[in-house]
């Protein structure tokens, strides 16, 4: 499409950003010329328009498509009713996956939020904040293939008595323990996988929570200090409540990512040894077994699983409006 790479570079660096700003400018220029009451009704749709359009094409339409083909057979040629749902809810592998997703949901969310918060608050107090923050953030910058290599080096196993090549087992045996096959033994293996995800995603929680922490006006903290509050009191009564909505956002995001957890499981165990998760099962049904009906049914179940989370978010949305 772009023969000239220099032209492409210009489009990339200048054209695209300029076009987005130009859109907003154009919208206001047009709205300024029509009757204010009409403009007021039209404005929100033009501001949200690009987002809604892209979401419609790339996410909403495929999701409706997914929902429909979840009632069809493997290659979507024959209506099978609820048979795919019946299959996934009686299939042992899927039931294990459901249980594991619950584990992921609880522990991934808990640990990323707690660690993210802890790091954000601790690092805020030291001058080398940007360095330590970068080190915690680093795993986010690693592709999941590389993450697989890293954790292979961490979890590697050699028989007892041999020199260990895995970091964790070298530590365990150095303290006189027996090497552990982290990815094989149940239930350790599920937690070993969740640990990898926590290691990656804490950087996300840290960055968002830290931005929220910095957003708390200094005056409020100072006022609390003047009132004689100590650091712990400030943390519990001022800082955390003011970060409440951001903590909720991070937790929601992590719950959703726990539900669609895939990468880590796919590279490390592919769901063997009782570590299956829903998204990995869906991937198998879709691309390996090419059973689009079952794959779609799993995707639909994932979508239904977040309805409670959406309800909580509607409530929060209304509360924020009333503030």
């Amino acid at each position: 499409m772009f023969e000239n790479r220099l032209l492409l570079a210009l489009i990339v660096v200048i054209g695209v950003p300029a076009a987005t700003v130009a859109y907003a400018w154009l919208v206001e220029a047009v709205l300024g010329r029509i009757r204010p009451t009409v403009a007021r009704g039209l404005r929100p749709w033009l501001w949200t328009g690009p987002v809604l359009l892209l979401l419609l094409v790339y996410l909403i339409y495929p999701t409706i498509n997914t929902f429909i083909i979840s009632f069809f057979n493997a290659n979507s040629t024959e209506w099978v009713g609820l048979a795919n749902y019946e299959f996934i809810f009686t299939n042992n592998a899927v039931l294990i996956a459901l249980r594991n997703n619950l584990l992921w949901l609880v522990f991934l969310t808990l640990f990323t939020v707690v660690f993210g918060l802890l790091f954000a608050i601790l690092f805020d107090r030291v001058r080398y904040e940007s360095v330590v923050k970068s080190l915690i953030f680093l795993p986010m910058a690693i592709s999941f293939v590389a993450a697989g290599v890293i954790w292979r080096i961490m979890y590697d196993y050699q028989p007892p008595g041999q020199d260990q090549t895995g970091t964790l087992n070298a530590l365990v045996t150095a303290f006189g323990g027996n090497p552990v096959a982290w990815l094989i033994e149940r239930p350790e293996n599920n937690f070993a996988l969740i640990a990898v995800a926590v290691w990656i995603w804490t950087g996300f929680a840290l960055v968002v929570l830290s931005a929220a922490l910095k957003g708390i006006p200094v005056e409020i903290i100072e006022a609390a200090k003047v009132d004689g509050a100590n650091e712990l009191q400030i943390l519990l009564r001022v800082t955390l409540p003011m970060m409440g909505s951001t903590i909720a956002v991070v937790a929601t995001t992590m719950v959703i990512y726990a539900l669609k957890a895939f990468d880590v499981v796919y590279v490390m165990t592919n769901g063997n040894f009782g570590t299956e998760v829903m998204a990995n099962r869906m991937y198998k049904e879709m691309f390996n077994f090419t059973h689009f009906g079952r794959a779609s049914a799993i995707a639909t179940v994932l979508l239904l699983a977040i309805v409670p989370i959406m309800i909580i978010n509607i409530r929060r949305f209304r509360q924020q409006e009333q503030m």
Binding site: D156, Y157, Q158, P159, Q162, P179, A181, L183, I184, E185, F273
Partner: peptide, 11 residues
């Protein structure tokens, strides 16, 4: 077999 079950599965 060398190393036993965990070695077979993890190697």
């Amino acid at each position: 077999v060398y190393g036993g079950v965990p070695t077979i599965l993890t190697t």
